[in-house]
């Protein structure tokens, strides 16, 4: 119980800070929305359809949500580096709550912030001409959360190992962009050349983005499925991969946080 309160207050502080910093949120959702609106309206017609019944916006929307959730949750790990640099981390580390709890609170904080941004984009669906049923929305939220907590934990794991702000930013960029590009956010994975398709399949983000698209496009998603080791990945298959990856990340983050010099 004490530990739960501990995780809650660690989480709450992150949310409070995020709330104070509204420009960060506006910045983080503006780019994906502009991308959808500008390219969506300008290019949809010219680029034709990606698959029967799937135009540019429809194809891109789930990918953009996935990208936003992934990038936000992952980069929220910078908060840990920041806290170390500004000394607040010491206040947390000498408090009578376990390091496991601290890591959990932090991962949940990153995930929540990413969820808020993902949901803001989701709210624009009707304006972009995308209709979603309540059931679909719930499924999307669950998938988004899985992606967010996994990537959030990975960001925190990284932040416990890399101690300088500059190094963290550099490593983050280095990992983030390949992860986004090779996850099928911007193009259909099925048509990639062999070596690239291999990279896509070892990229954990793929298993976060693909099911979002499968849920949103329903029957029309067939063209965008991926095949791993001869098996066409169903939503549940992807979710399982992501869950295993996420569990590994959060356990590693907890372990790494508790590691004492």
């Amino acid at each position: 119980m004490k530990e739960l309160i501990g995780a809650y207050i660690i989480w709450y502080r992150d949310i409070l800070r995020f709330w104070h910093d509204k420009t960060r949120m506006i910045g983080a959702v503006t780019f994906p929305l502009l991308f959808l609106v500008v390219f969506g309206s300008g290019l949809s017609a010219r680029m034709g359809t990606f698959a029967p019944g799937v135009d540019f916006t429809r194809f891109m929307f789930p990918g953009v949500i996935g990208m936003t959730v992934l990038m936000t949750s992952f980069s929220a790990g910078v908060g840990v580096v920041w806290d170390r640099e500004f000394g607040f981390l010491k206040e947390v580390l000498v408090a009578p709550i376990s390091r496991v709890t601290v890591a959990l609170g932090k991962a949940l904080g990153s995930a929540t912030i990413a969820m808020v941004q993902g949901v803001v984009i989701l709210l624009f669906a009707p304006l972009l001409g995308i209709k979603l049923s309540a059931g679909t929305v719930l499924e999307l939220l669950a998938l988004m959360f899985l992606l967010a907590i996994s990537m959030g934990s990975m960001g925190i794991l990284l932040a416990t190992r890399i101690r300088s702000m500059e190094a963290f930013q550099a490593v983050m960029q280095m990992l983030l962009f390949p992860m986004v590009f090779l996850s099928g956010v911007f193009f259909a994975v099925a048509e990639l050349p062999g070596w690239m398709s291999l990279l896509v399949k070892v990229n954990p983000a793929t298993y976060g983005v693909t099911p979002l698209r499968q849920v949103m496009l329903g029957d029309m998603a067939g063209a965008f499925n991926i095949e791993v080791l001869g098996r066409v990945m169903s939503i549940w298959d992807s979710v399982s991969v992501m869950a295993v990856f996420g569990a590994a990340m959060i356990l590693l983050a907890m372990w790494s946080f508790g590691h004492q010099e």
Partner: peptide, 13 residues
């Protein structure tokens, strides 16, 4: 209880 040598407050709060 601790007062560290270097600052350790959350300046944004």
């Amino acid at each position: 209880g601790l007062v560290f040598q270097d600052p350790s407050l959350d300046e944004r709060l």
